[in-house]
Simulated assay, not measured.
Amino acid sequence: MTAHSLSIRLALLSLLGLIIASVLFTAKPQIDLNVSGWFAGASGKDFVISQQRVWQEVRLFFRIITTGTALLMLAFLVHNLLRPNAAIGRNRALAFIVAAYALGPGLIANGFFKSFWGRARPRDIVEFGGTHTFTPALVPTDQCRLDCSFISGEASSAAAISLALLLAAWPRLSHRDRVRGSVAAASFTLFVSGLRIAFGGHFLSDTVFAIVIMGVIVPVVHLIVIGRAEQPGVITTRPPKGA
């Protein structure tokens, strides 16, 4: 399967996932409360894992990985534009990764949803010891003013950067490496998402919608920036002419 075909399939599957998630969390909003309740501690008001230093450092490590990777790709792209004779990687692949990250986690997740949706985080609602009111995922509200729960920024970042890297590298991967890469991308995204739920920072729906929305945005950006061209891997020391 080409990267072009994969992008189309991923976008369509993610759209289907978005529809399913919308129906599920609209019909059963209590799913969010139930899942968050698993991590709320014996008192039901204390997300214990969020207070443990080791897990705080794990979360910081993954944030550095996602943001750092995006910044590294941007640095490579700028380097290539300034020194085309000593290029690192292919410009279109690098531009795709940077654009996908900037549009997905940057503009859509943090710039729009988290700034204007107004959904309170689990740790801030009455059910878990806070003062704010729980609202279903797809209901805009006024329970949070800034850096709110819907959608998860870190889940968005993990999904976007891992999927973008996989699509950029896809043409040069063997079948076995494609399987390994897909498993690694999915595992990374799910772990980061699960950690945010365990911290009381996000509901299950925040992470699910983050993943499926990125699952639409990243492949669409790939189709626009790279199209049908089969790009080699992201990092090559001597890209072919015309890159």
Rank of each mutant, 00 (worst) to 15 (best):
V78N: 02
D124A: 15
S187I: 14
H222W: 08
A184L: 12
T236Q: 14
A155M: 03
L16N: 09
S36N: 05
G17R: 00
N110G: 01
L15E: 02
I151C: 04
L163W: 07
G44T: 01
A75S: 12
L166F: 10
T141E: 02
W38F: 13
V179H: 08
L107Q: 08
L72A: 13
L74G: 07
S162W: 06
L74C: 13
L103I: 14
R121A: 11
T131Y: 12
S43E: 10
M214G: 01
G118L: 02
Y101L: 08
A186C: 09
A70F: 12
I64T: 05
H4Y: 15
V23Q: 00
G242W: 07
I8P: 07
L138P: 06
V58S: 06
T131N: 13
A185M: 03
P84F: 05
I31S: 04
D46T: 12
I8L: 14
A160D: 07
I65T: 02
R176Y: 04
S14N: 10
Q143P: 06
G153R: 06
I197H: 07
S43P: 07
A155Y: 00
I108F: 12
L146A: 11
A243Q: 11
A3H: 10
S36F: 04
G17N: 09
V216C: 08
N91E: 15
A210T: 02
L33M: 11
W55H: 11
K45V: 10
A137K: 00
R121N: 10
H202D: 04
K114Y: 04
V183F: 11
A120P: 04
T207P: 02
A229K: 14
R121V: 09
R53S: 15
A3F: 04
W170E: 01
I8D: 09
H175G: 13
G153S: 04
K114P: 06
D142Y: 07
Q143V: 05
C148N: 09
V78R: 01
S187R: 03
F39L: 09
L81R: 12
L146M: 05
N80L: 05
A95V: 05
A95K: 05
D142V: 07
P122F: 00
V54D: 08
G242A: 06
E154G: 07
L33C: 11
L165T: 11
L72F: 15
V192W: 11
K45I: 06
C148Q: 04
V126K: 09
T135S: 15
W38S: 03
A86L: 13
L77F: 10
G130P: 03
D206C: 03
D142F: 09
K114A: 04
V78C: 06
L173I: 03
L173H: 02
G118Q: 01
D46H: 14
G130Y: 07
I226G: 01
R145S: 13
F76E: 08
T237C: 07
F112I: 15
I31M: 00
C144H: 04
R180K: 13
F96W: 13
P219T: 03
D142C: 01
P240D: 06
V35K: 02
